[in-house]
Write a protein that binds this DNA or RNA. Structure first.
Length: 567
RNA sequence: GCCCCCGUAGCUCAGUGGAUAGAGCAUCCCCCUCCUAAGGGGAGGGUCACACGUUCGAUUCGUGUCGGGGGCACCA
């Protein structure tokens, strides 16, 4: 498995070890036994002028040793054991130590990438442990909108990232198909079946008014059959039968959402239904378990859970005085079920409006006293998306009535651009989706910028026409100009980027990295030729861009964006 | 009133307890007889919202203030 770890990580470990040895010597010589534990900080400097790695070790040691940091830095360098990877060290600024790797150490990454191929950047941190990513989880009351799209792009990318870090990932979609909103959907469809228009006074006040409701009503009256996941429903056409309308409408919309997801190229492993939790008795079991735990009480004809025992600011109603359960009871039942299914880790990707449920769900799980860890499950919340076109906010879609649908976006700007734009921003900041920018086939558009870098590389390799398998034997020493050094350095950080993106649950860092890598490539491409007469230099350069193409492809794949060979 | 997220260049956004805070767009100037100009090079543009703390060092951490957004039901 060590093979999968990049040379980057191995190098870092080596360097850290060297530093630890040097630091210990110095600490002992100065008789400062209280510095028993040394946390060596070894970082990638922001600027290439500062080398491949830098450490603030001397700055940290300055205080306990009561010495000038630059003097300590000089001592550390003097005490570094002999090694092959460091070509040069220098003391900079207040006392940073910068390390410059030997050319050979830098070049090794090319072969590592070419050998690992699609595996480059992957690791086994997750040890094949089970993790579930729940995302989208839209109510089956309409087509998916932009907000769901953001959840879909971010959630799917998180799943890909965790997979790349060695986790056993399950993608899951949860349907709230049992609540008041479904009743609302049902009466809206029914009204349409009866020919009541949306501006008619007798149309349900809070009913759904999008055109799709009309489509459902027409299909229902037409006795059509719809398929969603593992169920198939045929409409009875009976406008007196509420249950029949409900079942059909839900199946119809689940099918619609399936089509939305398909257009977005997202696949789920499991669809869970709230109604199933009731049908299988899991909601009732959870209620009984909570009562048994002693954390509940009756008040005003309602059953309450003392969520304040677990950090909530007020207690929550479980069973309303009318006998029905509030939504959070099936939510707790659902998450208890996830735990029972063996997910050591669960990540819920949701809109920020779900913020208030986090404390409640966790409190409910704690109250069950089932050995579930306190901070379980994890949440990634994304903020609002606003859509702009021609400098104006777009608010309406014909199909949905009151919001921009995901499918509208995909049809207008394409799947790649939509996925990229929705995943390329930190999920906890608000996102402005600029349709004009996403459609632009120019350098304004980061998606094309990155894809173009990949296509350019493919184009050069195709025109060369040689056998890429021989890159393994190529002598890389001709790679020595600043563009090549920059690319080598960038390529070697990729595994670190992938690991950090997963740790921080931050897919957008992948997008940023790819933009930087593409920029390095374009810059190199403009400055140097590849198909040249000098065979040794040519092969070295072709190896380098081939490796670059591989990393671009691997990274784009993490975002779910294609890496075209021609544009 | 309480809770959460955000506030960085004209715009859209990265970034970080440390070295001169970055990129793209927009503006201005250059670069295709030559592997895709869907590209590259350069210039200008900043009180990192504000104030006070912690620190050798704060844009980054803490507290408060001001802005923007979201959430605070016996709705889901």
């Amino acid at each position: 498995m060590l093979f999968l770890l990049s040379c980057e990580f191995v190098l870092k470990a080596h360097l850290t070890q060297l530093l630890a040895i040097a630091a210990k010597t110095i600490v002992q010589n100065n008789g400062a036994p209280e510095v028993a534990e040394l946390t060596i900080l070894l970082e990638r400097p922001k600027s290439a002028e500062h080398g491949d790695f830098a450490t603030n070790l001397a700055l940290v040691l300055a205080k306990p040793l009561k010495q000038n940091p630059r003097a300590i830095a000089a001592h550390i360098i003097a005490n570094l054991p002999a090694n092959d990877y460091i070509a040069k060290t220098e003391i900079a600024g207040a006392g940073f130590i910068n390390f410059f790797l030997s050319a050979q150490s830098q070049q090794e990454v090319v072969k590592e990438i070419l050998n690992a191929g699609a595996q480059y950047g992957r690791n086994n941190v997750g040890e094949s442990k089970k993790v579930q990513v729940e995302f989208v989880s839209a109510n089956p009351t309409g087509p998916l909108h932009v907000g769901h799209g953001r959840g879909a792009a971010v959630g799917d990318c998180l799943a890909r990232l965790l997979d790349a870090n060695g986790w056993d990932v399950t993608r899951e979609f949860y349907y709230n198909d049992a609540g008041a909103q479904i009743d609302n959907l049902t009466i809206s469809v029914l009204a349409r079946c009866k020919g009541i228009s949306t501006d008619d006074a007798s149309f349900p006040e809070n009913g759904y008014r999008g055109e799709y409701i009309n489509d459902i009503a027409a299909a229902y009256l037409d006795k059509q059959t719809v398929v969603a996941d593992d169920i198939q429903v045929t409409a009875s056409g009976d406008i007196e039968n509420l249950d029949s309308v409900r079942t059909f409408a839900v199946a119809y919309l689940r099918h619609e959402q399936d089509l939305d997801l398909k257009a977005f190229q997202i696949k789920f492993d499991v669809f869970s239904l709230e109604s199933a939790l009731y049908a299988e008795g899991k909601v009732e079991q959870t209620v009984q378990a909570l009562i048994k735990s002693g954390h509940t009480y009756e008040l005003d004809n309602a059953l309450w859970l003392k969520t304040t025992d677990f950090g909530d600011d007020k207690d929550r109603v479980m069973r309303k005085s009318d006998g029905g359960y509030t939504y959070f009871v099936p939510d707790v039942a659902y998450h208890a079920d996830k735990w029972n299914r063996g997910f050591v880790r669960v990540i819920n990707e949701q809109g920020a409006d779900h913020h208030s449920t986090i404390t409640r769900v966790r409190a409910g799980l704690q109250a069950l006293d089932a050995g579930i860890p306190k901070g379980w499950p994890d949440y990634v919340l994304h903020q609002m998306v606003t859509v702009m076109r021609g400098g104006e906010e777009v608010k309406l879609s014909k199909r949905a009535g009151s919001y921009v649908t995901l499918r509208d976006l995909i049809e207008e700007v394409g799947c790649d651009a939509t996925r990229y734009f929705l995943a390329a921003r930190r999920s906890d900041s608000q996102l402005v989706f600029d349709i004009d920018l996403a459609r632009a086939q120019t350098n304004d558009n980061p998606v094309y910028y990155i894809q173009y870098a990949h296509a350019r590389i493919c184009s050069v390799l195709t025109q060369w026409g040689g056998n890429a398998a021989h890159f393994n034997d190529v002598d890389l020493t001709p790679l020595n100009n600043s563009h090549e050094t920059a690319l080598l350095q960038r390529l070697s950080t990729y595994p670190e980027i992938v690991a950090n993106a997963a740790t921080e649950l931050a897919p957008h860092t992948i997008a940023n990295y790819l933009k930087d890598l593409a920029s390095d490539l374009h810059s190199y491409y403009n400055e140097y030729k590849f198909l040249i007469d000098d065979e040794a230099v040519k092969l070295a350069r072709l190896s380098l861009i081939s490796a670059t193409g591989q990393v671009l492809k691997n990274g784009l794949n993490l975002l779910g964006v294609s890496a075209p060979e021609r544009m």
